[in-house]
Design a protein around this nucleic acid. Structure first.
Lengths: 333, 333
DNA sequence: AATATAAAGCGAAACGTTTCGCTTTATGTT
DNA sequence: AACATAAAGCGAAACGTTTCGCTTTATATT
């Protein structure tokens, strides 16, 4: 049906090799270049990527392994990854691990079967055994957001512990001492952020009260529940750090249910600058991650690895974060 | 590097044709079957989908064109589409249109270049010209959530007008007469839902007050702003219908900012049963769409079209909705 | 036992590119 | 004018499958 390089050959009288050379940016006499271009236009020729893939062993397709495709955080990351890859002519085949390591492992094999040129993975956990088969098949892997425990893969991420440390330090600097945390402990990032909280508190000589640390799952529900718990304490915290978007959303809803006000009665510090924050009243102080850079860097690094072909030492790109100031933190005592 | 069918041939002494037949589920003598299976295991053979694709002209890959990949609604749909397709051995290549028709058009061509076997599209608008090139290339297209203006493509969706009608009818049946609406008018679904609202109101003989209809973009921001507007009216509505998830989220936040209570001071009806609803207090009444069925049906229909090969008359699958009752609607007067 | 029929196997061509090694043509140097 | 060198073009093989049309083998029927 569709025109092939052979039709171009007939039309121009040139050889397949020459036409192929033209298609891949090689040098061709101006005269022949014209001929080829005319023929391409006339026959609506487009190169068949499948055939090309068969001989070059390249599909110009990258697999994206997301621990969950329902999270808005990942949606945003996905957009940036996609935009970057597209510019390079790469498509992305996405796989949803549904937060299940078993599905993740299946997905890796599926992607290898589809002969992707590389994989960007937002892994379910730091236990990245499922990715070993990719390594064995010499398909480059770049982790995003979450590193592997053994640091055996390239990784683009932020320093979660440090980011949390700075956030809590900010609260401390504003005079807060009784600082609570609503954090998810089900995934790496949450645990790291919790560490940062502890470190800042300890350094400041604050006691780490067990009842100030509400930990649970990465969900709006838990954010609601955790915050409710903190608010019902006899001596409730004067400030609360919420370790991610979903948790913050639930937590703010819990606060709204009471007749306490932010920042008069309680100060808040969130994590992840997603659209919600523009609408919550008062505007939240929050740690912002460079989502765009994260997606772009991951894409960039992966393309580089694909290009080089050889297996290099794993590298880590750790991007900086900053605190976006809102009106949710009061200076006290 | 990897084993090919030729290696299996050497190992077993059978012909390529026979092995290929086995691989594709054809009949082979038990004895030979054993040999082949042993060889496959020993050599870790896996069929090369690229080579297969070249001759069958099938990639077992489906393109998904999403108007935005940042919306949580689409994330959920994506998960269901992905799960269904995967079961059939299909991968999905996803493209983000960023709510821009121009990008959408580019994406279609990109997908055709990648030789996808079919496309599931959540189009930016009902103006689906960009998909015509897919039609020309005989690549089946199934629209999801939003139909095409000229009904020229298969489509899986709900009856938005009817769903909204029922929701508003529910409010009317509970004695409400002054019913407001916060709706997005930037996309098809929002406009249809608004129509349903009007129809129900008119049928009930209620005046359609202009100031009760807050319309704007599909965003949390607008939900917040629109609801604020309604709440500040001298004679404010006794009930408000919010036409989608984002708008509802913003609207509830706006309500929380005031000291009005739901359902004592105002009743609420939302749209889309996403996780938030389990956490908002009080639990929202809402229209729920069968997201899982939508994703599955779209996948199923597309696979059917891919299988049949021929172009059939476009069909529409319109799924039912229901109202999930919460505690946000009071019976009045 | 002869024959008809079904089942299994086979060789070769095809799918649409890229690439290797070689030849031809053009350009520049002495 | 002869030659060296660079540039462009070419034919053929290769990539790893599937599939077509045919042959061989096994099974069933009379």
């Amino acid at each position: 049906m569709a025109a092939t390089i052979r039709d171009i050959k007939e039309q121009t009288g040139l050889s397949l090799a020459t036409i192929s050379k033209y298609l891949n940016g090689g040098n061709v006499l101006p005269e022949n270049r014209m001929k080829i271009e005319a023929a391409i236009k006339e026959l609506h020729y487009e190169v068949n990527e499948i055939a090309r893939g068969l001989v070059t062993n390249r599909t110009r397709t990258v697999g994206v392994l997301a621990y969950s495709v329902e999270s808005i955080f990942n949606g945003t990351l996905l957009r940036h990854i996609g935009n970057s890859l597209r510019k390079a002519g790469y498509g992305l085949m996405i796989c949803d691990s549904c937060d299940d390591p078993k599905i993740e492992a299946e997905n890796v094999n599926f992607l290898l079967g589809k002969k992707v040129d590389g994989i960007i993975a937002l892994p379910v956990s730091t236990e990245t055994d499922s990715l070993k088969s990719a390594k064995k098949a010499k398909v480059p892997v770049v982790l995003l957001d979450r590193p592997s425990r053994d640091a055996e893969f390239d990784c683009v991420r932020i320093d979660n512990c440090r980011a949390a440390y700075q956030a809590v330090k900010f609260l401390l600097d504003n005079g807060h001492k009784r600082i609570g945390i609503v954090c998810s402990r089900t995934e790496y990032t949450g645990r790291e952020r919790c560490k940062g909280y502890r470190k800042a508190m300890e350094e400041a000589g604050c006691v780490l009260r067990k009842e100030y640390c509400a930990s649970g799952t990465h969900s709006i529900e838990f954010g609601f529940e955790g915050m409710s718990r903190l608010l019902s304490l006899k001596e409730r915290p004067t400030a609360v750090f919420m370790t991610n978007y979903e948790v913050a959303l639930g937590a703010v809803m819990a606060l709204n249910k009471t007749n306490l006000h932010c920042p008069e009665d309680i100060s808040l510090m969130g994590f992840d600058d997603l659209i919600m924050s523009h609408v919550i009243h008062p505007r939240l102080h929050m740690v912002v991650q460079p989502m765009k850079e994260m997606g772009e860097k991951a894409a960039e690094l992966l393309l580089e690895r694909i290009g080089s072909g050889q297996q290099e030492m794993a590298m880590e790109i750790v991007l900086g974060t900053r605190i976006s100031e809102g009106d949710s933190v009061a200076e006290i005592g």
